[in-house]
Amino acid sequence: MIADKAIANMARAIPATHFSTNDLPASDQFDAWRDIISAIFDVGRLGGPNSDSFEARVDAYQISNLVVTDSNQGEQAYSLTPKRIRATGMDLIQIGLYRSGGYRGDANGRSIEGQAGDLQILDLARPMKTVEPASDMVCIFMPRETLQDRIGDLDGLHGASLRDDMGGLLADYLRLLAKRLPRLSGDNGDAAANATLEIISACLRPTAATIREAQAPLQNVVLQRAKQIIEGNLRSPHLNSEFLCGALGISRRSLYRLFEPLNGVHQYVLRRRLSQIRRALKTNAHQGIAVLAEQHGFTCKETFWRAFKRQYGVTPGEVRSASLSRQKDERPSPEPGLGVWLQQLQHG
């Protein structure tokens, strides 16, 4: 009876996978780790040619539409290049707690640095590179839309560190979550995911607001209204400064000042249109690239191509080809694991 009960409890456990280099030959350890982490990042050795061994461990758990990892790993360099972003197709947000270690590097042109106890936010669809000592971490991965629906625009969060009281609260929760997940019943997976998202949203909302609200409160209300109008008219050929000024009842000068922290209204509209097209290229294999561009206000093929390449480092055709290749290479019943789970987050 006791054995039967234990087996039943195990059957109801949340999906989990475990990796460690401990049982591998020293010369194979880093290559094995690189294969695992390549689901997200490119990594490089920092210990020099004489450093054969590499200690790393990662336990991954899937709870509803979240993936949580509990890991420790040796010193190394991480990077997300346009090529890697294209290869993985990840449109995810990563929130990582450094229980020990830290990081120093660049997030899409902005210098970033953190230490033990810090929380780091990464947009896995944007370039980054860091150098990190041996670190012990808890990370949560979620689809961009899942977080965006709860806290609004995520502009400015890539590379951000949370060091305030709310960041400390979230760090405490992630430590507790990492301890509880190995014993969490599968029946409680959805509830745990919902609770985790609520806590993350509550703790990140002030940070996102601080980044967004560099303007006065009234300006922010107008800015949010402007963003709503833009989102609803991304396919309209009439979406321009004149249209927005008329819809908002403000002057052109006020409009430009409103979007100045976001690199200007033209650039903001351009980024949103390109983002919509990029998503469509990965999910709709039957619609022509030129048609998508025209539907989103691009009247010149060359202008669209240059803008897309400048934004993402790859061409629209390369994004479409990479997406088709991933779909073609998928196995009917892939083995569960970190890479598979992260890809599943992409597709709901």
Rank of each mutant, 00 (worst) to 15 (best):
residue 68 V to G: 03
residue 72 N to D: 15
residue 10 M to W: 07
residue 311 Q to W: 02
residue 125 A to C: 04
residue 19 F to K: 04
residue 329 D to G: 00
residue 347 H to M: 11
residue 129 K to Q: 15
residue 214 A to S: 13
residue 203 C to E: 04
residue 241 S to E: 15
residue 243 F to S: 03
residue 288 G to H: 14
residue 232 G to H: 12
residue 54 F to I: 02
residue 23 D to M: 01
residue 221 V to H: 09
residue 324 L to K: 09
residue 322 A to P: 08
residue 202 A to S: 11
residue 239 L to G: 01
residue 340 V to R: 13
residue 6 A to F: 11
residue 87 A to F: 03
residue 189 G to Y: 10
residue 13 A to Y: 01
residue 16 A to E: 14
residue 63 I to D: 12
residue 118 D to K: 00
residue 302 E to V: 09
residue 111 S to M: 07
residue 60 A to L: 05
residue 220 N to R: 08
residue 198 E to H: 03
residue 66 L to V: 02
residue 84 R to C: 05
residue 147 L to C: 06
residue 73 Q to K: 05
residue 90 M to A: 13
residue 140 I to E: 07
residue 280 A to N: 10
residue 163 R to L: 04
residue 53 S to T: 09
residue 3 A to R: 11
residue 310 R to M: 12
residue 23 D to N: 12
residue 344 Q to T: 02
residue 95 I to T: 01
residue 183 R to D: 15
residue 284 N to S: 11
residue 186 G to R: 04
residue 56 A to G: 05
residue 324 L to Y: 03
residue 264 G to F: 12
residue 214 A to Y: 03
residue 135 S to E: 10
residue 95 I to R: 00
residue 321 S to M: 07
residue 79 S to T: 12
residue 156 G to L: 02
residue 186 G to L: 08
residue 111 S to E: 14
residue 293 A to Y: 08
residue 141 F to H: 13
residue 255 L to S: 04
residue 313 G to M: 06
residue 348 G to F: 10
residue 129 K to R: 14
residue 83 K to W: 01
residue 126 R to N: 11
residue 240 N to M: 04
residue 265 V to N: 00
residue 312 Y to S: 06
residue 67 V to A: 03
residue 77 A to K: 11
residue 18 H to K: 06
residue 17 T to H: 13
residue 307 A to H: 09
residue 228 Q to L: 13
residue 59 D to I: 01
residue 316 P to H: 01
residue 2 I to G: 13
residue 128 M to N: 06
residue 170 L to I: 00
residue 309 K to H: 09
residue 1 M to P: 08
residue 28 D to L: 13
residue 311 Q to S: 10
residue 335 E to R: 11
residue 192 A to Q: 10
residue 284 N to W: 05
residue 33 W to P: 05
residue 216 A to Y: 05
residue 318 E to C: 02
residue 303 T to R: 13
residue 181 L to S: 01
residue 203 C to V: 02
residue 267 Q to E: 15
residue 60 A to D: 06
residue 299 T to N: 14
residue 251 S to E: 15
residue 268 Y to L: 09
residue 81 T to V: 12
residue 35 D to F: 01
residue 343 Q to E: 15
residue 198 E to S: 11
residue 93 I to M: 09
residue 137 M to G: 01
residue 77 A to R: 14
residue 50 N to P: 00
residue 132 E to N: 05
residue 168 G to N: 13
residue 275 S to L: 08
residue 195 A to V: 07
residue 49 P to Y: 03
residue 297 G to T: 08
residue 5 K to L: 15
residue 50 N to Y: 12
residue 52 D to W: 07
residue 308 F to I: 03
residue 218 L to S: 11
residue 303 T to K: 10
residue 24 L to Y: 00
residue 165 D to Y: 02
residue 265 V to T: 07
residue 96 G to K: 07
residue 180 R to N: 12
residue 161 S to N: 03
residue 145 E to R: 08
residue 203 C to R: 02
residue 17 T to V: 05
residue 199 I to W: 05
residue 88 T to K: 01
residue 165 D to M: 08
residue 241 S to R: 12
residue 6 A to I: 12
residue 130 T to L: 11
residue 225 R to N: 11
residue 16 A to W: 04
residue 124 L to Y: 10
residue 69 T to S: 10
residue 282 K to W: 04
residue 266 H to G: 10
residue 153 D to S: 11
residue 277 I to H: 05
residue 315 T to E: 14
residue 327 Q to P: 00
residue 75 E to Q: 13
residue 319 V to E: 14
residue 246 G to P: 00
residue 347 H to Q: 14
residue 228 Q to N: 14
residue 100 S to R: 03
residue 96 G to C: 10
residue 205 R to W: 07
residue 164 D to A: 07
residue 153 D to R: 02
residue 56 A to E: 04
residue 229 I to F: 07
